[in-house]
């Protein structure tokens, strides 16, 4: 059941070249999505250390989403592939911390996919709202 009063905090790591630009395009196209998302710009999705994701989720973030270029389009050749393999590891680590799998996602969003960015953020926020607040939330 969706908790209507729960206003989750969601962190989104966006790569500079595709997803961050996709987020900008959502803005240029005035596509509305929930205010819960806070974007942190990184150069590449492959730059996001698993510890940062764990750190965020154990310190009160209700959801974390890494966004990178589509496979094959990485500005740094294969950073997104690295991020993808790390995502598997992150999922395993989350189990140890007792954090639900669904609180972490990885998505590929290109610079021309403003609508997709808005949609992904809408869906993810909805999903987090369904799961409820992070168990680590004070």
């Amino acid at each position: 059941m969706t908790n209507t009063n729960f206003d989750p905090i969601i962190l989104s790591f966006c790569c500079n070249w595709c997803s961050y630009a996709g987020a900008d395009l959502a803005g240029i196209s005035r596509l509305q999505y929930p205010t819960n998302v806070r974007i942190i710009r990184v150069m590449c999705s492959g730059m996001v250390h698993p510890n940062l994701v764990i750190d965020a989720l154990t310190k009160g973030a209700d959801g974390v989403i890494i966004c990178g270029c589509h496979i094959g389009d990485c500005h740094y050749l294969e950073g997104n592939l690295k991020a993808q393999s790390r995502a598997e590891a992150i999922k395993l680590m989350l189990q140890d911390f007792g954090i639900e799998d669904e609180r972490f996602r990885i998505e590929w969003i290109s610079a021309s996919e403003g609508p997709r960015f808005a949609q992904v953020m809408k869906d993810f926020t909805e999903e987090i709202k369904k799961i409820g607040p992070s168990p680590y939330k004070v």
Partner: peptide, 15 residues
Amino acid sequence: NFKLEHIAAQIAAAL
């Protein structure tokens, strides 16, 4: 300028 500490500080600020 993208140290783990920098990004962690951004995360802490967001939370």
